[in-house]
């Protein structure tokens, strides 16, 4: 379970998160919506441990542990996964090698045995197929020369193989056509279960047609200004974010 209490954070002199309270129980999927520049990506980076943000107040716990003191790799080992809004390219690093290295790093950190190459490749090929990705996806270099849609699918491929307890999906739907959107949503829905939770950051109601959220939160100017059920997403789609800051 993820519990965020009064989280405030700034970059330099600029305060970006102005007090976030949010709880995501195990097994639930929460959507976070909000205008550009609201602080959605910042929140996902702070949860996954990226440098460069100063947490000026509040606390975050994950399964009872203080998340904010942990290194990014320790958070990954604890079960947190971030699907990047803009996935990063790693020239010369094969995708399969990268993911397998990650899977085994996480397994080792958890005291589990490493996965052998054969088992890994079998799982990976199945996941590639399920995500309707081209066969050479595992051989290519991580995100190098990938189309926007391929990069997003590659994030979901990694999520599928890393089997996180909490997935943070930062605008994984942007730039996807409707078929790709369906496939990506399928990947998330397949992970759904009592031990999986997700924070789905999105601009659009569209994705939520395929991933039904348990809760919807609106993030504006660095804090949650409204929360509700799935119907909130529909309302936002119709009326926009205008006036929400004041709510």
């Amino acid at each position: 379970m993820l519990e965020i209490k009064g989280l405030r954070a700034s970059v330099g002199a600029k305060e970006i998160l102005t007090g976030i309270d949010l709880t995501v129980p195990d097994g639930e999927i929460h959507a976070v919506m909000g205008p550009n520049g609201a602080g959605k990506s910042t929140l996902s980076y702070i949860l996954s441990g990226r440098d460069g943000y100063e947490v000026t107040g509040g606390a975050v716990s994950f399964d009872g542990a203080d998340l904010l003191v942990m290194a990014p790799e320790a958070r990954a080992a604890a079960g947190i996964f971030l699907a990047f809004q803009y996935p990063i390219e790693l020239p010369g690093v094969g995708n399969a090698n990268f993911i397998r290295t990650a899977v085994n790093a996480v397994r080792r950190a958890r005291g589990e045995t490493e996965m052998d190459t054969v088992t890994f490749l079998k799982e990976a090929r199945n996941a590639v197929k399920a995500l309707a990705m081209p066969d050479d996806m595992l051989k290519r270099n991580v995100n190098v020369g990938f189309s926007g849609g391929e990069k997003k699918r590659n994030e979901i491929l990694q999520m599928t193989l890393l089997k996180p307890k909490l997935a943070l999906l930062d605008e994984t739907d942007s730039g996807l056509d409707i078929d790709a959107l369906r496939i990506v949503a399928g990947g998330v829905n397949a992970a759904r279960g009592p031990k999986f939770s997700a924070l789905v950051i999105t601009h659009y109601q569209r994705l939520l047609d395929y991933i039904t959220p348990d809760r919807v939160h609106v993030l504006a100017a660095g804090r949650i200004v409204r929360s509700g059920g799935p119907e909130l997403a529909v309302e936002l789609e119709q009326h926009g974010y205008g006036g929400l800051e004041a709510a």
Binding site: G49, P72, E73, A76, F81, I88, L90, A102, A105, Q158
Partner: peptide, 18 residues
Amino acid sequence: ISDDQLFYCRSRGLSEED
């Protein structure tokens, strides 16, 4: 080596040195 590349790898569970 960009900070982005390092963070991307670390967010997947790799240590900084790896």
